[in-house]
Design a protein around this nucleic acid. Structure first.
Length: 174
DNA sequence: CGCTAGATGAGA
DNA sequence: CTCATCTAGCGA
């Protein structure tokens, strides 16, 4: 999905923390067995009642919060933020993830939500009207690598994982 | 009501 | 490799 690719290199700010998005994955609301909309009526309702950009957060494995943004238009679905390069609020983030090095701070979907303090309370937030959230686009387009999605058991072969080429802050190298 | 599969991460 | 920990959705 184009939007997932376009978010690579963007700076994401939430409250007092920020970072550059270096890894994303796309989930298509149409015909993608790995997307929540495939088996969850509540996810389909979320897509229909919210506008593009809305924050979709959910709890996985009973303890890990996953951050997504809603995509709408011709293709609809979610972009999962899988890793960021920490920029601002380093002390705050390291305080939430004791003992982790800078490289290990936000190199995974659950790690970055823990570090940035993102949880279910943010589900449904609208970054366009909520000053806690800021998304800035890069001045120069970054080099992007594409690979298959990881961590899922169905439709994992879709080439919908995007990484900033050469970044050492991705969850795992391509 | 009971059951179970997860878009994971930490630790041994 | 194991296991922590919870909930939407589904079948009975």
């Amino acid at each position: 999905m184009i939007c997932a690719k376009g978010l690579i290199g963007c700076t994401l700010e939430f409250r007092d923390t920020s970072g550059v998005i270096v890894e994303t994955e796309a989930y298509d609301a149409q015909g993608d067995p790995a997307c929540h909309t495939w088996s969850r009526p509540s996810a389909r309702e979320f897509v229909s009642i919210n506008r593009a950009g809305t924050v979709y957060v959910y709890l996985n494995y009973g303890m890990h919060w996953m951050l997504n943004f809603l995509v709408k238009g011709k293709r609809e679905g979610f972009v999962l933020i899988r890793a960021i390069q920490p920029i601002r609020g380093l002390e705050l983030m390291q305080g939430r993830r004791i003992g982790r090095t800078l490289n290990q701070l936000c190199n995974g979907p659950a790690k970055l939500t823990q570090a940035m303090g993102i949880n279910g309370a943010q589900h449904g937030a609208d970054p366009l009207s909520d000053s806690k959230w800021v998304l800035r686009f890069p001045s120069v387009a970054p080099d992007i690598a594409v690979s298959t999605r990881i961590g899922i058991t169905v439709a994992a072969d879709y080439p919908w994982r995007f990484l900033m080429k050469g970044s050492s802050f991705v969850s795992r190298p391509q």
